[in-house]
Simulated assay, not measured.
Amino acid sequence: MASSTVRPEVQPSRASAVAQRLLDSSATLSYDPQAEVDWETPLDKGYHGASPEWSTLYGTAYWDEMTEAQRKELTRQEAASVASTGIWFEMILQQLVLRDIYAKDPTDPEFQWALTEVADECRHSIMFARGAKKLGAPAYRPRRAAVELGRAFKTVAFGEAAYAAILVAEEVLDVMQRDWMRDERVVPFVRTINNIHVVEESRHMKFAREETLQRLEKAGWVRRQIHAFVIAVASYVIVTSMVNKKVYANAGLDSARAIAEAKANQHHKSMMRSSCSGLMSFLASARLLTRPALAFYKRAHLI
């Protein structure tokens, strides 16, 4: 009689276990922006596009001189610019993720979660594009240098550099959008967009943290130093691209004065630093806050 061999059960990796939980969460709670967002109601210009406290001019002398209508128009243009930057980076993110899972095991929950994340990002990008158009804004694009740096980054970044950069972009957006989605001064359809993005991106950020830590387990000193620098430069480019300088002219303001006052605005710098405290703690715990990296985070007012 032939003996049968019982195979030991293969235990999933920590990342696969996290991915499976995220897949289960996505199946339970995900949104269809086409159905959830009110695209039909005309824009009510009595609302802001974002919480005023997040405006780049809030707290400046120029802000005090502006009419309430001008303030609301500015926040709508700024919200549209942030959305456009989000689309740009989500396109980079999708390529990073797809390149990372290329030719990997499609039965693995990590692979399936990665495709779920890409699908989420596609829907988010369309949602942001429609939202920016409804806010009455043009297509804001990052400056040419940022576009070319993004092109290089999406081509060569891998491992912790890719996932930590994803985390930085999403964490900064997450904090400001949590404020906007609760603020009744913000136009309702933008609040809905922010709520959808916050809920679904919370899963993306959890996975990015897990992947960053996992990839760093085998990283030596040199690799850690190089990737810490790459992540910091990517973060600087992303954050400084969020509000396009053209928003001021499109809001009917004196562009030169607005740019100068926004650049010197200590209130906005403080808001950025406070929004990134948790992120900086994570990067510090992962030993990614090297001296060269810190210089870029400080220039971007993230620390």
Rank of each mutant, 00 (worst) to 15 (best):
A139F: 08
V147S: 03
E201P: 06
S125E: 12
A234L: 04
T116D: 05
N250I: 03
T240S: 15
A114W: 04
A137C: 07
L23N: 09
S3R: 12
I231C: 00
P142F: 02
R123M: 08
F207P: 00
Y62F: 13
P42T: 07
D179T: 14
A17V: 10
K72L: 04
M272P: 00
Y62S: 11
R291N: 04
R191I: 13
R215T: 07
K298P: 00
D120Y: 06
V190R: 15
F282C: 00
A79R: 12
K218Q: 13
L43Q: 10
M272I: 10
A15P: 03
I226T: 12
R182Q: 15
E90M: 05
K263N: 10
K133P: 00
A228T: 02
A119S: 12
E65Q: 15
W54Q: 04
Y163V: 02
R143A: 14
A228L: 05
R21L: 14
R151D: 13
E53G: 08
S241T: 15
V230D: 07
S274W: 01
A69E: 14
D254N: 15
A114I: 02
L294W: 00
W88L: 05
L115C: 12
V97G: 01
A234K: 00
E68I: 08
Q70E: 15
A103F: 13
A249L: 12
P292S: 07
P8E: 11
F128R: 09
A17N: 09
F207Y: 14
W63E: 06
A2G: 03
H301V: 05
A27C: 03
Q214N: 13
T116I: 09
G252D: 07
R257P: 07
E211A: 11
K245G: 14
E170N: 07
V230Q: 09
R291L: 12
A232Y: 01
Q95V: 01
I303P: 00
E170M: 07
T155A: 14
A129Y: 11
L167I: 01
L74T: 02
A232P: 12
A2V: 10
V6G: 02
F229M: 06
D105A: 06
